Amino acid sequence: MGEIQNHRDLKVWQISMDLVETVYRLSRTWPNHELYGLVSQARRASVSVPANIAEGAGRRRTGEFIQFVGIARGSLAELETLLILANRLRYVDGDARDHLMSDIAEVGRMLTGLIHSLRERQTR
């Protein structure tokens, strides 16, 4: 991994931003009584992923970056759980769920790869 100039250069940040947009669009169709519950929680969890990547990239130490990428992974797992719940409550159909789960898995793989790359850089 080369030197990161800006968090916006990271493909994982770009894709996680796309995921946030998808979650916002999809959650608009959820019941109004969920606005301050599941809608709000899913949106916050989705935003937390690119936000923590950005915050970590802005830190001076690689160890701090790794910590924030770990937090992003936790938020991604939270988002996955909330989307499974939304599907169980029939707020999300199977196709939308499958598409989102695929996106979540891709971002998860990328976050894991970023952590491995950062750890390698840290040991040099």
Rank of each mutant, 00 (worst) to 15 (best):
L38Y: 04
V39A: 08
V39E: 04
S40E: 08
Q41C: 04
A42V: 00
A42K: 05
A42P: 08
R44D: 09
R44K: 15
S46M: 09
S46N: 04
V47I: 13
V47E: 00
V47S: 06
S48H: 02
S48C: 08
V49E: 03
V49H: 02
V49Y: 05
V49L: 06
V49A: 04
V49P: 03
P50I: 04
P50D: 05
P50W: 02
A51T: 08
A51G: 04
N52C: 01
N52H: 06
E55C: 02
E55T: 05
A57S: 15
G58W: 01
G58V: 02
G58C: 05
R59T: 04
R59M: 05
R59W: 07
R59Q: 14
R60K: 13
R60W: 01
R60N: 12
R61G: 04
R61I: 02
R61P: 04
T62P: 03
T62M: 08
T62R: 13
G63N: 10
G63F: 07
G63H: 10
G63Y: 10
E64Q: 15
E64I: 00
F65K: 10
I66H: 03
I66R: 07
F68W: 07
F68R: 12
F68H: 14
V69G: 00
V69R: 08
V69M: 06
V69D: 05
G70A: 07
G70C: 07
G70Y: 00
G70K: 12
I71N: 13
I71S: 09
I71H: 14
A72Y: 00
A72K: 10
R73I: 00
R73K: 15
S75Y: 02
S75V: 10
S75E: 09
L76V: 10
L76Q: 13
L76K: 10
A77W: 07
A77C: 11
E78Q: 14
L79F: 12
L79V: 09
L79A: 11
L79C: 12
E80P: 03
T81Y: 07
T81N: 13
T81S: 15
L82R: 11
L83E: 12
L83R: 12
I84S: 10
I84G: 02
L85I: 15
N87C: 10
N87D: 07
L89Y: 11
R90K: 14
V92C: 11
V92Q: 08
G94Y: 02
D95G: 08
D95Y: 08
D95H: 06
A96S: 15
A96I: 01
R97E: 07
D98G: 10
D98T: 09
D98I: 01
H99W: 00
H99D: 14
H99L: 12
L100Q: 10
L100C: 14
L100I: 01
L100W: 03
M101G: 06
S102N: 12
S102W: 01
D103M: 13
I104A: 08
I104F: 02
I104R: 07
A105W: 01
E106A: 07
E106M: 12
E106S: 11
V107H: 01
V107R: 09
G108V: 00
G108H: 02
R109Y: 10
M110C: 00
T112Y: 14
L114G: 00
I115Q: 11
